[in-house]
Design a protein around this nucleic acid. Structure first.
Lengths: 230, 230
DNA sequence: ATATAATATCTGATATATCAGATATCAAAT
DNA sequence: ATTTGATATCTGATATATCAGATATTATAT
């Protein structure tokens, strides 16, 4: 059996640069609302806190800025954007489109050997779904999507998806906490799997897009519900 | 008639930071192929050349990196993306997907005023198509697509398309050289226009994706033909 | 001549220092 | 009490210095 783990990126990443580490940390903190909307992210303060200089920190902030999670006003400061959810949603629309083409390309290009790997993963997903093992399932789902974008054999799309796929990580867990969502997620993944194996590119793309966009809606709804409660 | 120009962003930019200026300069230089694919962009050298320090330069490079225009390898260097540039086809798959969602979002969000602008552009396109004015038509086509991704009101997708868009600037011209292609192009644009105005999001996305993927095929074919001739 | 190891050099990554705009503070004037 | 303006202070923007990996070079051994 192949190894499934949530942090594939630990491997083969020789000395992750500080800016990348900090970027991840800040992003996680913002998405998990440790830093709330409007919070002032002070360069010096954070640098001191993390025990680094301001240079890599600044680079991390730049990236967050481009993704819309923070807003920087010259010589005033960098602040957590007022509407993070909007940024996340924006990025997820892009993700749905990109993972959609990836599924199409995978359907067009997948080899017999790769079908085997994808099948194996799907079998595992069924088992863990029935066992309601959410933890393992999250890892497997991630693996499933990664296999597909790998088999698409399109480097640009692969990189682009890699850059943004983590944006719903904090929500994914929440989404899978509902039992019916667990089952539904598997059904969708299985349908995508079938379409790719059948080399039905149109269907594969359509299903993948629908799958991701539905999760966007799901996240939006649960957020709205959380907001209404407070 | 409305004015068509590429630099609306000149207005209202108080004290543009050095990093922004440098970012634009580098981007322009890459797109105009002053810096060819694979070219090594050396931080110190460029900083000296521009008469600035490496800090803002580094920030500009980071941004270009995220957009995929350059690739940075730790402690080796930053290079103008070559593998990506080479496979215009790879990148265009992404473009079709992203412009597709953009069309969907535009259909969902477009306002009456924006419909007016889009209509005006479409009218112009018809006129220039009938007049077989290829030069103007290229500009208008670009404008048409830009309006749509603007009306999508999704900053992330907008940026991503703009970045991709810049890659195939050179070869787009080729696609419109054939007369029947001219006419066909207009028909497709018009259909997309109608779908958006009718707020038929599904159709708008589908048509846009089809439109772009067909031009990918068209360019591939003419490329192959040109190769066979040589 | 080729392979290999020592080393010099180039380059990005990071740290630190300085500059300048923006805001806050507070005193003087009305 | 309110306004105004001088000034102190905070903060991001930029510049410069240092660190460390990667590559090229050269010398040495076989």
């Amino acid at each position: 059996m192949m190894s499934i783990h949530g942090h594939e990126e630990d491997i083969a990443l020789q000395t992750r640069s500080i800016r990348d580490v900090i970027y991840e940390k800040l992003k996680e903190a913002i998405l998990s609302e440790q830093y709330k909307a409007g919070h002032h992210l002070k360069e010096r303060e954070l640098a001191k806190q993390f025990g680094i200089s301001t240079t890599p920190l600044k680079e991390a902030l730049r990236r967050l800025e481009q993704e819309g999670l923070v807003t920087t006003s010259a010589r005033r400061g960098t602040f957590v954007s007022s509407d993070i959810m909007n940024s996340v949603e924006e990025i997820n629309w892009a993700r749905s489109a990109l993972e959609g083409v990836a599924a199409r390309l995978a359907a067009l290009k997948i080899t017999d050997e790769e079908v085997g790997m994808l099948t194996e993963t799907t079998v595992q997903m069924r088992i863990y779904t029935e066992a309601k093992n959410t933890e393992q399932l999250i890892a497997l789902n991630g693996h499933f999507h990664k296999l597909i974008r790998t088999y698409a054999k399109n480097n640009y799309i692969f990189q682009q998806i890699e850059a943004i796929h983590s944006f719903d990580r904090s929500f994914r867990k929440k989404a899978l906490s509902h039992e019916d969502e667990l089952e539904r997620g598997f059904q969708e993944h299985y349908a995508i799997y079938q379409a790719i194996v059948a080399k039905d590119a149109d269907l594969a793309e359509k299903l993948m897009i629908g799958h991701i966009r539905r999760t966007i809606e799901f996240v939006k709804e649960s957020k709205a519900a959380a907001k209404a409660k407070s």
